[in-house]
Protein backbone atom coordinates (compact mmCIF):
# COMPACT_ATOMS: atom_id res chain seq x y z
CA UNK A 1 0.00 0.00 0.00
CA UNK A 2 1.37 3.36 -1.03
CA UNK A 3 0.68 6.13 1.46
CA UNK A 4 0.56 8.92 -1.15
CA UNK A 5 -2.46 7.41 -2.89
CA UNK A 6 -4.19 6.67 0.40
CA UNK A 7 -3.58 10.27 1.40
CA UNK A 8 -5.06 11.65 -1.86
CA UNK A 9 -8.18 9.52 -1.40
CA UNK A 10 -8.44 10.51 2.26
CA UNK A 11 -8.27 14.20 1.33
CA UNK A 12 -10.94 13.85 -1.34
CA UNK A 13 -13.27 11.96 0.97
CA UNK A 14 -12.82 14.31 3.87
CA UNK A 15 -13.41 17.41 1.77
CA UNK A 16 -16.50 15.75 0.39
CA UNK A 17 -17.93 15.47 3.93
CA UNK A 18 -17.60 19.20 4.29
CA UNK A 19 -18.90 19.94 0.80
CA UNK A 20 -22.24 18.45 1.79
CA UNK A 21 -24.42 19.01 4.87
CA UNK A 22 -23.32 15.58 6.21
CA UNK A 23 -20.40 16.96 8.19
CA UNK A 24 -22.34 19.78 9.79
CA UNK A 25 -25.43 17.73 10.58
CA UNK A 26 -23.31 14.97 12.07
CA UNK A 27 -21.21 17.29 14.19
CA UNK A 28 -24.16 19.32 15.47
CA UNK A 29 -26.19 16.21 16.36
CA UNK A 30 -23.18 14.56 17.94
CA UNK A 31 -22.39 17.58 20.11
CA UNK A 32 -26.03 18.12 20.98
CA UNK A 33 -26.65 14.51 22.00
CA UNK A 34 -23.41 14.15 23.93
CA UNK A 35 -24.37 17.30 25.79
CA UNK A 36 -27.80 15.95 26.66
CA UNK A 37 -26.44 12.58 27.68
CA UNK A 38 -23.72 14.04 29.83
CA UNK A 39 -25.64 16.74 31.62
CA UNK A 40 -29.13 15.28 31.92
CA UNK A 41 -28.93 11.51 31.77
CA UNK A 42 -25.43 11.34 33.17
CA UNK A 43 -26.09 13.79 36.03
CA UNK A 44 -22.78 15.46 35.37
CA UNK A 45 -23.29 18.19 37.94
CA UNK A 46 -25.13 16.20 40.58
CA UNK A 47 -22.34 13.65 40.75
CA UNK A 48 -19.96 16.44 41.69
CA UNK A 49 -16.98 14.44 40.57
CA UNK A 50 -14.27 15.95 38.42
CA UNK A 51 -14.18 13.40 35.63
CA UNK A 52 -15.83 12.82 32.27
CA UNK A 53 -17.18 9.32 32.79
CA UNK A 54 -20.82 10.38 32.30
CA UNK A 55 -19.69 11.83 28.99
CA UNK A 56 -17.78 8.76 27.77
CA UNK A 57 -20.24 6.19 29.15
CA UNK A 58 -22.81 7.15 26.58
CA UNK A 59 -20.47 7.08 23.63
CA UNK A 60 -21.07 3.42 22.68
CA UNK A 61 -24.81 4.11 22.46
CA UNK A 62 -24.34 7.39 20.64
CA UNK A 63 -22.01 5.74 18.15
CA UNK A 64 -24.41 2.88 17.66
CA UNK A 65 -26.67 5.15 15.63
CA UNK A 66 -24.42 7.94 14.46
CA UNK A 67 -21.47 5.95 13.14
CA UNK A 68 -23.51 3.59 10.93
CA UNK A 69 -25.11 6.71 9.44
CA UNK A 70 -21.65 7.94 8.55
CA UNK A 71 -20.35 4.58 7.39
CA UNK A 72 -23.33 3.56 5.28
CA UNK A 73 -22.34 5.85 2.46
CA UNK A 74 -18.69 4.78 2.30
CA UNK A 75 -19.14 2.20 -0.46
CA UNK A 76 -22.88 2.02 -1.04
CA UNK A 77 -22.81 5.51 -2.48
CA UNK A 78 -19.84 4.78 -4.73
CA UNK A 79 -21.76 1.82 -6.06
CA UNK A 80 -24.99 3.71 -6.52
CA UNK A 81 -23.44 6.67 -8.36
CA UNK A 82 -21.14 4.44 -10.40
CA UNK A 83 -18.04 6.28 -9.17
CA UNK A 84 -16.70 2.97 -7.90
CA UNK A 85 -15.92 2.16 -11.51
CA UNK A 86 -14.04 5.40 -11.88
CA UNK A 87 -12.17 5.05 -8.59
CA UNK A 88 -11.09 1.46 -9.16
CA UNK A 89 -9.90 2.05 -12.71
CA UNK A 90 -7.61 4.82 -11.51
CA UNK A 91 -4.11 3.56 -10.73
CA UNK A 92 -4.88 2.75 -7.09
CA UNK A 93 -5.26 -0.61 -5.41
CA UNK A 94 -8.45 -1.68 -3.67
CA UNK A 95 -6.57 -1.65 -0.35
CA UNK A 96 -5.53 1.98 -0.85
CA UNK A 97 -9.09 2.96 -1.66
CA UNK A 98 -10.56 1.05 1.28
CA UNK A 99 -8.07 2.42 3.80
CA UNK A 100 -8.19 5.96 2.38
CA UNK A 101 -11.95 6.12 2.62
CA UNK A 102 -11.99 4.57 6.08
CA UNK A 103 -9.31 6.94 7.38
CA UNK A 104 -11.25 9.93 6.08
CA UNK A 105 -14.31 8.83 8.05
CA UNK A 106 -12.18 8.08 11.09
CA UNK A 107 -10.42 11.44 10.97
CA UNK A 108 -13.83 13.02 10.63
CA UNK A 109 -15.12 11.36 13.80
CA UNK A 110 -11.88 12.51 15.43
CA UNK A 111 -12.76 16.08 14.47
CA UNK A 112 -16.28 15.68 15.87
CA UNK A 113 -14.84 14.23 19.05
CA UNK A 114 -12.29 17.02 19.38
CA UNK A 115 -15.10 19.56 19.11
CA UNK A 116 -16.48 18.32 22.41
CA UNK A 117 -13.59 20.15 24.09
CA UNK A 118 -15.92 22.60 25.88
CA UNK A 119 -16.94 19.72 28.14
CA UNK A 120 -13.31 19.18 28.99
CA UNK A 121 -12.91 22.91 29.64
CA UNK A 122 -15.99 22.83 31.86
CA UNK A 123 -14.74 19.99 33.99
CA UNK A 124 -11.35 21.66 34.34
CA UNK A 125 -13.03 24.93 35.30
CA UNK A 126 -15.19 23.25 37.94
CA UNK A 127 -12.63 20.98 39.47
CA UNK A 128 -9.30 19.27 39.17
CA UNK A 129 -9.81 16.20 37.01
CA UNK A 130 -7.09 13.73 36.09
CA UNK A 131 -6.49 14.90 32.53
CA UNK A 132 -4.55 11.80 31.60
CA UNK A 133 -7.65 9.70 32.31
CA UNK A 134 -9.70 12.07 30.17
CA UNK A 135 -7.16 11.81 27.37
CA UNK A 136 -7.30 8.03 27.63
CA UNK A 137 -11.08 8.28 27.45
CA UNK A 138 -10.85 10.28 24.25
CA UNK A 139 -8.40 7.78 22.81
CA UNK A 140 -10.64 4.85 23.73
CA UNK A 141 -13.67 6.58 22.30
CA UNK A 142 -11.88 7.32 19.04
CA UNK A 143 -10.62 3.74 18.76
CA UNK A 144 -14.13 2.46 19.36
CA UNK A 145 -15.47 4.81 16.67
CA UNK A 146 -12.86 3.31 14.34
CA UNK A 147 -14.12 -0.17 15.15
CA UNK A 148 -17.70 0.82 14.38
CA UNK A 149 -16.60 2.50 11.17
CA UNK A 150 -14.62 -0.50 9.96
CA UNK A 151 -17.67 -2.72 10.50
CA UNK A 152 -19.83 -0.16 8.71
CA UNK A 153 -17.37 0.06 5.84
CA UNK A 154 -17.54 -3.68 5.28
CA UNK A 155 -21.32 -3.81 5.35
CA UNK A 156 -21.56 -0.77 3.12
CA UNK A 157 -19.43 -2.65 0.60
CA UNK A 158 -22.11 -5.32 0.39
CA UNK A 159 -24.94 -3.22 -0.91
CA UNK A 160 -25.80 -0.17 -2.95
CA UNK A 161 -28.71 0.53 -0.65
CA UNK A 162 -27.65 2.84 2.15
CA UNK A 163 -30.68 2.11 4.33
CA UNK A 164 -29.90 -1.59 4.31
CA UNK A 165 -26.26 -0.82 5.07
CA UNK A 166 -27.35 1.35 7.99
CA UNK A 167 -29.72 -1.17 9.55
CA UNK A 168 -27.35 -4.12 9.25
CA UNK A 169 -24.45 -2.09 10.59
CA UNK A 170 -26.50 -1.05 13.62
CA UNK A 171 -27.36 -4.67 14.32
CA UNK A 172 -23.77 -5.91 13.97
CA UNK A 173 -22.44 -3.07 16.09
CA UNK A 174 -25.09 -3.76 18.69
CA UNK A 175 -23.92 -7.36 18.78
CA UNK A 176 -20.37 -6.13 19.37
CA UNK A 177 -21.50 -3.87 22.19
CA UNK A 178 -23.70 -6.48 23.77
CA UNK A 179 -21.43 -9.47 23.37
CA UNK A 180 -20.22 -8.95 26.95
CA UNK A 181 -23.79 -8.84 28.25
CA UNK A 182 -25.50 -11.89 29.83
CA UNK A 183 -28.30 -11.58 27.26
CA UNK A 184 -25.95 -12.60 24.48
CA UNK A 185 -23.73 -14.92 26.46
CA UNK A 186 -26.73 -16.94 27.72
CA UNK A 187 -27.75 -17.54 24.17
CA UNK A 188 -24.43 -19.26 23.52
CA UNK A 189 -23.61 -20.79 26.88
CA UNK A 190 -26.39 -23.37 26.55
CA UNK A 191 -24.75 -25.20 23.69
CA UNK A 192 -21.43 -23.64 22.80
CA UNK A 193 -18.15 -24.71 24.41
CA UNK A 194 -16.75 -22.54 27.17
CA UNK A 195 -13.85 -21.21 25.10
CA UNK A 196 -16.28 -19.91 22.49
CA UNK A 197 -18.37 -18.13 25.11
CA UNK A 198 -15.24 -16.53 26.51
CA UNK A 199 -14.10 -15.52 23.06
CA UNK A 200 -17.44 -13.91 22.35
CA UNK A 201 -17.33 -12.10 25.65
CA UNK A 202 -13.83 -10.82 24.89
CA UNK A 203 -15.10 -9.33 21.65
CA UNK A 204 -17.23 -6.82 23.48
CA UNK A 205 -16.50 -3.20 22.67
CA UNK A 206 -17.60 -2.20 26.12
CA UNK A 207 -15.07 -4.32 28.00
CA UNK A 208 -12.16 -2.81 26.11
CA UNK A 209 -13.57 0.69 25.94
CA UNK A 210 -14.23 0.79 29.68
CA UNK A 211 -10.76 -0.54 30.39
CA UNK A 212 -9.13 2.26 28.40
CA UNK A 213 -11.58 4.79 29.85
CA UNK A 214 -10.26 4.05 33.35
CA UNK A 215 -7.01 5.60 32.22
CA UNK A 216 -5.09 2.36 31.95
CA UNK A 217 -3.96 1.99 28.37
CA UNK A 218 -3.36 -1.72 28.17
CA UNK A 219 -1.62 -2.85 25.01
CA UNK A 220 -4.18 -5.66 24.69
CA UNK A 221 -7.05 -3.21 24.45
CA UNK A 222 -5.22 -1.24 21.78
CA UNK A 223 -4.47 -4.44 19.89
CA UNK A 224 -8.10 -5.45 20.19
CA UNK A 225 -9.36 -2.33 18.44
CA UNK A 226 -6.58 -2.21 15.87
CA UNK A 227 -6.98 -5.86 14.86
CA UNK A 228 -10.73 -5.42 14.80
CA UNK A 229 -10.34 -2.54 12.35
CA UNK A 230 -7.73 -4.39 10.30
CA UNK A 231 -9.95 -7.44 10.08
CA UNK A 232 -13.06 -5.58 8.93
CA UNK A 233 -11.10 -3.47 6.47
CA UNK A 234 -9.48 -6.57 5.06
CA UNK A 235 -12.94 -8.07 4.67
CA UNK A 236 -14.07 -4.84 2.97
CA UNK A 237 -11.23 -5.06 0.48
CA UNK A 238 -12.02 -8.68 -0.30
CA UNK A 239 -15.71 -7.94 -0.75
CA UNK A 240 -14.99 -4.97 -3.02
CA UNK A 241 -12.56 -7.04 -5.06
CA UNK A 242 -15.09 -9.86 -5.38
CA UNK A 243 -18.18 -7.91 -6.21
CA UNK A 244 -17.10 -4.50 -7.37
CA UNK A 245 -19.28 -4.58 -10.44
CA UNK A 246 -22.49 -5.93 -8.90
Amino acid sequence: MRSYYTWVILKRELSSYFATPIAYVFIVIFLFLSGIFTFYLGNFFARSQADLSPFFNFHPWLYLFLIPALAMRLWAEERKSGTIELLLTLPVTVAEAVVGKFLAAWVFTGIALALTFPIWLTVNYLGKPDNSVILAGYLGSWLMAGGFLAIGSCISALTKNQVIAFVITVVVCLAFILSGFPLVLDFFSGWAPQWLVETISSFSFLTHFNAIGKGIIDIRDLIYFLTLMAFWLFATAILIEMKKAD
Binding site: R12, A19, T20, S81, G82, T83, E85, L86
Partner: peptide, 8 residues
Protein backbone atom coordinates in the same frame (compact mmCIF):
# COMPACT_ATOMS: atom_id res chain seq x y z
CA UNK B 1 -22.77 7.45 -17.99
CA UNK B 2 -19.61 9.41 -17.08
CA UNK B 3 -19.79 8.96 -13.31
CA UNK B 4 -18.16 11.66 -11.18
CA UNK B 5 -18.44 12.66 -7.53
CA UNK B 6 -21.61 14.76 -7.56
CA UNK B 7 -20.72 17.01 -4.64
CA UNK B 8 -17.38 18.08 -6.09
Amino acid sequence: GAPAYPDM
